[in-house]
């Protein structure tokens, strides 16, 4: 699956995007965030502020309990500030 990061989440992780297989023990967005936090110190720093991170699955905003499938495009970012 494709994982994308934006704004300060991207800066802390140190990557704009990465590809990984959905781990067998990850069922939803919140589970993926816990899994990603273990990938590097940068990931850990970003996901330490989990409550300030929003997510989109296949380009739709979604809640932490949104289920995931391998092949989904999942994005993590802070609350939006456009306009």
């Amino acid at each position: 699956m494709q994982i994308l990061y934006f704004a300060w989440v991207r800066q802390k992780v140190g990557l704009g995007q990465e590809t990984l297989e959905l781990p067998g023990d990850v069922a939803d967005v919140a589970g993926l965030m816990r899994h990603l936090a273990g990938r590097s110190p940068g990931h850990a720093a970003a996901f330490a502020q989990a409550k300030q991170i929003r997510a989109a699955v296949n380009q739709e905003f979604c809640a932490p309990n949104h289920p995931l499938r391998n092949g989904d495009e999942v994005a993590f970012f802070p609350p939006v500030t456009g306009g």
């Binding site: 970012f77 802070p78 939006v80 500030t81 456009g82 306009g83």
Partner: peptide, 22 residues
């Protein structure tokens, strides 16, 4: 302002920067 994925970063003359908070 609340429903489209845009993010603003402020740049300062001294080279500093700050993400705008929602």
């Amino acid at each position: 302002k609340t429903g489209a994925p845009f993010w603003k970063r402020e740049e300062f003359a001294d080279g500093g920067e700050r993400w705008v908070e929602a």
